[in-house]
Design a protein around this nucleic acid. Sequence first.
DNA 1: CTGTTAGCGCCTTCAC
DNA 2: GTGAAGGCGCTAACAG
Lengths: 332, 332
Amino acid sequence: MAQIKDVAKRAGVSVASVSRVLAGHTGVTEATRQRVLEAVQAMDYRPDLAARRLRSRRTDTVGLIVSDIRNPFFTEVSRAVEDMAYQNRMRVILCNADENPEKEALYLDLMRDENVSGVILSPSLPTLAHFRIQDYPFPVVLVDRCDRETTADAVVLDNTDSAYRLTIHLIEQGYRRIAFIYGATSATGRQRQEGYVTAMATHGLETLTQAVPATVDAARIAASELVQGSLFPDALMGSNGLILLGLVEALREARLQFPEQIGLAGFDDLPWTRLVEPGITVIAQPTYDIGQATIELLLQRIAHPSQSVRRVVLRGELRERGSSVRRKDATL
Amino acid sequence: MAQIKDVAKRAGVSVASVSRVLAGHTGVTEATRQRVLEAVQAMDYRPDLAARRLRSRRTDTVGLIVSDIRNPFFTEVSRAVEDMAYQNRMRVILCNADENPEKEALYLDLMRDENVSGVILSPSLPTLAHFRIQDYPFPVVLVDRCDRETTADAVVLDNTDSAYRLTIHLIEQGYRRIAFIYGATSATGRQRQEGYVTAMATHGLETLTQAVPATVDAARIAASELVQGSLFPDALMGSNGLILLGLVEALREARLQFPEQIGLAGFDDLPWTRLVEPGITVIAQPTYDIGQATIELLLQRIAHPSQSVRRVVLRGELRERGSSVRRKDATL
DNA sequence: CTGTTAGCGCCTTCAC
DNA sequence: GTGAAGGCGCTAACAG
């Protein structure tokens, strides 16, 4: 492997000049610049990143800690982060916390060891509860999940408002006993539940909520009990794509047709929500945009460590489909 | 930040001893070992990875270059890789090539710059065609995609055989004019197409194949033309989950019911294939196992650079569902 | 504008 | 068994 001094020798300059040219510093004669670049090219010189990182004390690396990589929401966010990061000459270290606070802590610790330039994190509820930005030696931008109280850069959906609009939609379609099944491990689920509660209260309706671990199976089991119990909901709402999937499975098992026998709506416009007849009404999240906004916020923060804390809130879009059409016997 | 010399000072030993203890070397008195560990603990000392990497010339980092992170197959593979890698004290650098050979080349180059310990790659067809393991200064294990000719460690599905079995299943169910729509950018698609062709030939049936870019939209458009054209297929097969999704969309648009009006089957047992009535017949891939086997192979290769090349072939599992049930008018 | 040089923090011979 | 010392390859401060 060619080293910087080999390049310097070949170009007939000092290592400092080579370094300067490669760093894009000004104050180098065009002539030397050319000679250096030529030598670099000829020798296929590649700076040793370990050495550079040791010397410069920066890694140009972003840590991405997602709650659950299997959730298509996070997949798409990761894709956006990855795209933008490499465009900005940054590496991405991927970590999947599997909704496990201990793993989150472990990975955050690892990020410290790695001396990353910054971290993107979608914290679980326990982590978020104790989260203080000043506990970390690197900038952190939260994505998807954050509290009103959290003092940190963040990019989130308008969760409460979106859930409110979705609930109102169901109410307007004539549903009354609407049950809300939501993920207990995230701030997002809770905020969406708040929106649901507010909407129900506005119309003087009783609420019916159920917190579950954010998995398909947990949602399926909870929904099964709900529809077969004595509470007789006339519509089901799920707080995210995985939970919504569990609800559909439960309704299939119970042989309940939607919207004829029970209404259905949820979050995340996943491909299958259009394919399951007659289509499922959802709030679509601008997932790629969320990821993009997050990495942009992080890059800005890295560039300007002391700029004021920002929160970017993106709007969810209601996509009405067959699963929530007006009940024949509805009376408003 | 505490450094190794601070720890040494506090423990009353030399930096060499600290280094030895931390590296788990033998030949250190239990007494000094204890004093060092105590000091490390007390000072919350963390070795500087950049320095360690420069000095040791190894990064303990794995590069993961997937074709398309949105494909749930690769999501699950990534999850397994990530799990196992961190369990083995390795970092994972994530790269999403988006089925783009240029991006693949770019990322492979980047892996070289990063001096990674090894790379996991799911190559596009062009990359695979020119792929020679000796062109890279690090071990590479291929995942999901590889040719018969490729001389490299690899973990793949029994693509040809699985496709053969799936096709035979359709034939046995009475389908005759079976069309196969497959991803043109991967060896996988082509191998599955071979299995289809073999199965059709076995029964003296005419083949009907269509290569498309491996995206939902491309598959949808191709399928639309196919079912509305003059070739009148009586069944459709898709070579992976994204393509299968496109096929379903096309059938919906054309208002063709499966299995009544047309049979349907494909690859990848995604959640929605059970939910789309009456369920879609698929070959299920052991995705997590594939990922796990891949990283294990890579770790072995890193440990034993000169061990013989290995190929791990995992078996796909046929899951029969309603979309391929026997046609009423079938005559074998 | 260019070159010389002193480290960045750690590991690892090599003596003792 | 332990310590002293020389780099790993690069950047940046300083001097010219």
